[in-house]
Write a protein that binds this DNA or RNA. Sequence first.
DNA 1: TGATAATGTTGCACTTGATGCAAATATTCA
DNA 2: TGAATATTTGCATCAAGTGCAACATTATCA
Lengths: 221, 221
Amino acid sequence: MGRTSDGHTEGRRERKRRQTRERIEQAAMSLFLERGFDATTIEDIAARADVSKRSFFDYFPSKEEVVFAWQDGFADRMMTAIAARPADEPAVKAVQHGLISAIVLAADERAMALGELVRNTPTLRARDQLKYAKLEGKLTEALRLRARSEEERRRMRLLAAVVMSALRVGGEVWNQEPPGTSLEAFAHRFFGSFWKSLGEFSDEAEKTDQKIPSVMAESAR
Amino acid sequence: MGRTSDGHTEGRRERKRRQTRERIEQAAMSLFLERGFDATTIEDIAARADVSKRSFFDYFPSKEEVVFAWQDGFADRMMTAIAARPADEPAVKAVQHGLISAIVLAADERAMALGELVRNTPTLRARDQLKYAKLEGKLTEALRLRARSEEERRRMRLLAAVVMSALRVGGEVWNQEPPGTSLEAFAHRFFGSFWKSLGEFSDEAEKTDQKIPSVMAESAR
DNA sequence: TGATAATGTTGCACTTGATGCAAATATTCA
DNA sequence: TGAATATTTGCATCAAGTGCAACATTATCA
């Protein structure tokens, strides 16, 4: 009997299940890239993966979910990477490095093709946005595991949100970047300018403002 | 013949069309609130609005879109409100005030009920996230109309993104707030602490960092 | 006013995504 | 091997959404 990476034994049953899932995913992805998402039916996918149409839904809850199946793995790697950062590192740096290392690992050709597919398939836009929301949730979790005070826990929710903004906008800028650029270097540069911009926004706001008690800190009425 | 608010004549045809649309929207919303989104079929809606199932799709492209039909009006009001801010006001303040005034106008009972509906209808989560993306696009537009340099235009994309973060997180915090709180006051307090937090994130990042050229400014390779 | 063009509405047939269920098949393990 | 368990499949069914052609209403203008 085979064994999975975490030492848990994997019988024929589990192995076949995993293989079938992979077969379906690959069949679907190749069809999506060939004909487009909308022009591919579940029957097409099932046929190429050599399973029944009904079985498709035993592995994926919907056609859309196949496109975003990679997400869970990505989120896990991101969480692990953040957890691995030194405990005394400031949160902003821990996310930046953790996120970037997860991105660099994930950003292969397949991922790029997938991004393009999503970008020119209007049907997928809503589900694509949900991706960020899910990731934001995971990011909040990961950051809160490091938080050392209630106050910091609250701030982490906000940090996760703005980091997702960085990811979104960074992605856009990256897509306009000439090909051949190093993704990792780009990402660090982008984050650098991102933090700087946040500071500028903050300064602009302060200039015209009197001090205001934090609404996150206490439930001020 | 009647006239619309913008002086354009409205014949029977246009008037009936508008009325039918409103009837469908109300029929749908009342059914959604009574039975839930998933438990309501298009035929139910069509029946209550007294049109054929086929006609429903003449007015709305899908069941989901009815729930988010208010969005266009909101975005327009937001853009108008921002455009109405003094030209020399810093961008951060212009968005804050513009956005808040649009929110205060929109936040009636119906909107709150709708928010709750969306929150406990998993089917709508993806489309709900798309709402923010669309709004972010409009916000970027509105801000860029005020921008006075290319550099500022680029920064506005980022500002729009982080402001949407504020909207998202602010909404969450607001929903945990005791009822009876003034929304407008809350929103201003929240934005105050938001800008402050951005500054803190920025400072935390600077502490551990050397200077980095802005990647937004030039297409540095 | 009345003919005609333009637009709106409806019914109908059809495709596809998705779900429940029960029969058939494969796998595990004592 | 054979009983228990899990997987796969086919089939029926529902609901969302689209194209199309027939029909109804409204607008236009000679």
